[in-house]
Design a protein around this nucleic acid. Structure first.
Length: 590
RNA sequence: GACUGCGUAGUUCAACGGAUAGAAUAGAAGUUUCCUAAACUUUAGAUAUGGGUUCGAUUCCCGUCGCGGUCACCA
C-alpha cells in the first residue's frame, strides 16, 4: 500500500464525483509544518478546468474526501491549499507493513557499472578524491538497494608523463629511499618526488628565462622536462631499467592506496590499469575511418567533426599513430562493456571533464554503439578551499590520510571529554573513534548535492554537532540504549490496538518513516546520496524531539510504551540502513 | 574572447513554479533529582542586480555585475 498513490486516486475520484471532470496532473505536496495536516493539494492549478475559485474547489473536494475516504480524517482550506489529515489507524497499519529491510527495493535485474576513484599513481589522495570515492561508493550502495546489480570499477592512471616526473625526480634525488627506510607511506613517497620534480623544473625554467629564452621555449627546454619525456618514450619501448623503476614505485603507491582505501572503507569489484588499456581504441578508430565517421589529415592525425552536436573538431589519434585520452577511453569503454555487459555505465568524474564526456558519448553514438544511450557522466563539483582550488604540485591540498587521522583524534578527544565509554576496551574505543571520524567526514562530503561545488575550510575542523554524521550516530546509540532497557525489562515492541490515538511526535515520526523507500528510489534516480542524508537527518531530529517530549517507559498506558518501543526499533533500523547507504557505521554506544 | 556552470542569513548547506524562503553553525536566552545534554526549547538574521512570463518566481526567459570550470597531438 502506497499512501500517496492511494490519496491521489481518491482525490481524482472526488473530483470526478463533484465536477464530472478527469484530472491527471495533481499537485500534492507535504503540508508545511505551521499548518494542520499531512498532505496538501494545491488547487490553484485546477481553477481553469473547474471554473471555480481555488478555495471553493478545496472545500468541495475536502468535503467529498472526508465522506468517502479510507485514509483522510479531516481537512482545512487556506486560499488555494487543501490540507488533508491522515487517520491514525492508517499510520499504524503502515507501521505494521514495514518488514525487515523495507529500504531494500525489489530486484530489477538491471546491471549498472559505476566507475570511480581512478587515482593517479604519482601522488597520494586528497580531499577531492575523497568526495569522488565516497560518492562512487555511496551511489553504488544506493543503486544496489534500489534493486540493481552493481559493478564497481576503478581505472588506475598508472602511466604517462606525470608518472615519469616523480620517477625521474626519485632517480635523481632519491638515494635509494624506500617506504621501509624512511617510514613514509608509499603514495606519499611518490608524491614527495612529484613535488620535487615541479620545484626543480621551475628553477630550471627560471634559469633559462634569465639566460634570454622565452617562457614557452624555456618550458620546453628545461633539462628535466626533456628527460621526463625521454623516460616516457623509454617506458613505451619497454626499457628494462625504466620499467623496473616504474614497477617498484607503483608497487609502493598501491600499498599506500590500499591502506587508505581500507581506512576509508572503499572497495572495487574490478580494477583496470591504464598501462594495459592505453593502446586500446585504435581498432575503433579504424572502424570509424572505414565508415567515414572520422577523417585523416595530411600529417596522418585522425579527427572527428562534432560541430553538428554543438561540439568541435576533435583529435582522436595522433599523427604518429599513438593514442590520446579519448582514444583510450573509447577502447576502455568498449572493453568494460564486453566484460560485463551493463545496462548502464556511470562515470563518477569531476565537472572539469564535462567536455571530454560529451565528446566521448557523442563519438560512441556516431559509432552506433547501442550502449551509448546508457552512458552517464556523474559530474560532481570540486571541493574548494577558502584560498581556491587544490593543486597537488603546489602542495595546496588537504591530504586524505592526514585528514582522517585528525578526525580520529578529534573523535577521541571529544569522546574522552564526555566520558561515556570508560568501560570500553582499547580496541572497542578505537573502532568507535574510527566510525565517528569516518561518519563525520563521509557525511560532510555527501550531504551536499553532488553537482555543486563545495567549500572546505581547513581552519575549522569538521563538526560533530548539528547537521553531521555523529549527530545521527548519537541518535542511533541512544535508541539502542532504549531498546536494551526494553529488552532487560521484558518489554517487546507491539502495535497499538485499534482506535489508539497517537501523540503528535509519534505521528510525525511515522509520517516521515513510511516514506523511506520512496527516498531510496529518488536517490537512485538522481544518483544523489544527499537525498538520503537529508532524509536521515530529519528522521534523527524527529526522534530526538519525540524522545525529549514523551517518556517511553513512564507512560501509564502499556500500549503506548510498547508502541514507542516498536517505533524506536523501526527508526533505529531505518537510520542504520540509510547510514549504510552512505557507507557510515552506527555504534551501539557512544 | 568563445562555451559552460554558479551567486540564498556572518559562515556552510536546503527549498517538483506554490502558503510566512527551511536547517546547521557562530550570537543571545533557557532545559539535567527523569530512558545517553554529541540532545532539546526560545530568539535574532538571507534570495547579487534590472526587466519579462505567470493567479503566484529563489526556481523559467533576457540583460548587467561578480566568482568558478573548459577551450592541448596531458590524463
Amino acid at each position: 500500500m502506497h499512501l500517496e498513490s492511494i490519496l491521489k486516486e481518491e482525490i481524482r475520484n472526488a473530483v470526478q464525483a463533484c465536477f464530472q471532470v478527469e484530472i491527471d496532473d495533481l499537485v500534492l505536496q507535504p503540508t508545511k509544518k505551521e499548518f494542520e495536516g499531512h498532505y496538501t493539494l494545491v488547487t490553484f492549478s485546477l481553477t481553469r478546468a473547474l471554473k471555480l475559485p481555488p478555495a471553493a474547489i478545496g472545500e468541495r473536494i475536502g468535503e467529498a474526501l472526508v465522506k468517502a475516504s479510507g485514509v483522510i480524517s479531516a481537512y482545512n482550506v487556506i486560499q488555494g491549499f487543501l490540507n488533508l489529515s491522515v487517520r491514525d489507524a492508517v499510520w499504524l497499519r503502515l507501521l505494521e507493513g514495514m518488514g525487515e529491510g523495507y529500504g531494500n527495493l525489489p530486484r530489477t535485474g538491471k546491471k549498472v557499472m559505476v566507475e570511480f576513484s581512478s587515482p593517479n599513481t604519482n601522488k597520494p589522495l586528497h580531499l577531492g578524491h575523497l568526495r569522488n570515492n565516497f560518492l562512487g561508493d555511496s551511489v553504488s550502495r544506493i543503486l544496489t538497494a534500489a534493486g540493481h546489480d552493481v559493478v564497481k570499477v576503478c581505472l588506475v592512471n598508472d602511466r604517462g608523463i606525470h608518472i615519469c616526473k616523480s620517477m625521474l625526480a626519485y632517480r635523481e634525488l632519491g638515494n635509494g629511499e624506500t617506504p621501509a627506510s624512511s617510514g613514509l607511506k608509499g603514495d606519499h613517497l611518490a608524491g614527495k618526488y612529484y613535488v620535487a620534480f615541479d620545484k626543480t623544473c621551475k628553477e630550471q625554467i627560471a634559469g633559462l628565462i634569465a639566460a634570454g629564452q622565452s617562457p614557452e621555449e624555456a618550458a620546453k627546454n628545461a633539462p628535466w622536462m626533456i628527460a621526463a619525456q625521454q623516460m616516457l618514450v623509454q617506458w613505451e619501448q619497454g626499457d628494462e631499467e625504466v620499467v623496473a623503476l616504474w614497477k617498484k614505485m607503483n608497487e609502493w603507491v598501491y600499498n599506500g592506496f590500499g591502506e587508505t582505501y581500507r581506512r576509508i572503507g572503499v572497495t572495487f569489484d574490478k580494477t583496470y590499469y591504464e598501462s594495459d588499456t592505453y593502446v586500446l581504441g585504435k581498432d575503433l578508430i579504424e572502424e570509424g575511418l572505414a565508415r567515414g565517421i572520422f577523417y585523416k589529415k595530411e600529417d596522418h592525425s585522425v579527427w572527428i567533426d562534432l560541430t553538428a552536436e554543438g561540439l568541435d573538431h576533435k583529435l582522436v589519434l595522433r599523427g604518429n599513430g599513438t593514442s590520446v585520452y579519448i582514444t583510450q577511453d573509447l577502447g576502455t569503454t568498449e572493453l568494460k562493456h564486453k566484460h560485463f555487459g551493463p545496462d548502464r555505465m556511470i562515470w563518477v568524474v569531476g565537472n572539469e571533464q564535462d567536455y571530454h564526456f560529451n565528446v566521448l558519448f557523442a563519438i560512441l553514438k556516431r559509432l552506433g554503439r547501442d550502449y551509448a544511450e546508457g552512458c552517464y557522466h556523474l559530474s560532481y563539483g570540486m571541493v574548494d578551499l577558502p584560498s581556491g582550488k587544490m593543486k597537488s604540485r603546489e602542495g595546496t591540498v588537504v591530504d586524505a590520510d592526514e585528514l582522517v587521522a585528525e578526525m580520529e583524534q578529534t573523535a577521541e578527544n571529544r569522546t574522552r571529554e564526555l566520558g561515556k565509554i570508560d568501560d570500553f576496551t582499547g580496541e572497542e574505543a578505537r573502532q568507535l573513534y574510527r566510525a565517528l571520524a569516518l561518519g563525520a567526514l563521509r557525511y560532510f562530503l555527501l550531504k551536499v548535492d553532488p553537482k555543486k561545488r563545495m567549500l572546505f575550510n581547513p581552519e575549522e575542523s569538521i563538526d560533530f554537532q548539528g547537521h553531521t554524521g555523529p549527530f545521527i550516530q548519537y541518535t542511533y546509540a541512544r535508541i539502542r540504549s532504549v531498546l536494551r532497557k526494553a529488552e532487560a525489562n521484558g518489554i517487546a515492541g507491539r502495535l497499538a490496538p485499534e482506535g489508539f490515538t497517537l501523540h503528535g511526535p509519534e505521528r510525525d515520526l511515522l509520517h516521515h518513516l513510511v516514506h523511506y523507500p520512496d527516498r531510496v528510489q529518488d536517490a537512485a534516480a538522481e544518483l544523489s546520496p544527499a537525498l538520503i542524508s537529508m532524509y536521515v537527518y530529519e528522521l534523527a531530529k524527529l526522534y530526538n524531539q519525540f524522545y525529549a517530549e514523551l517518556s517511553i517507559f513512564a507512560d501509564p498506558d502499556p500500549a503506548a510504551v510498547s508502541l514507542r518501543v516498536l517505533i524506536s526499533e523501526k527508526v533505529a533500523e531505518t537510520i542504520q540502513h540509510a547510514m549504510l547507504l552512505m557507507g557510515i557505521d552506527v555504534p551501539e554506544r557512544m
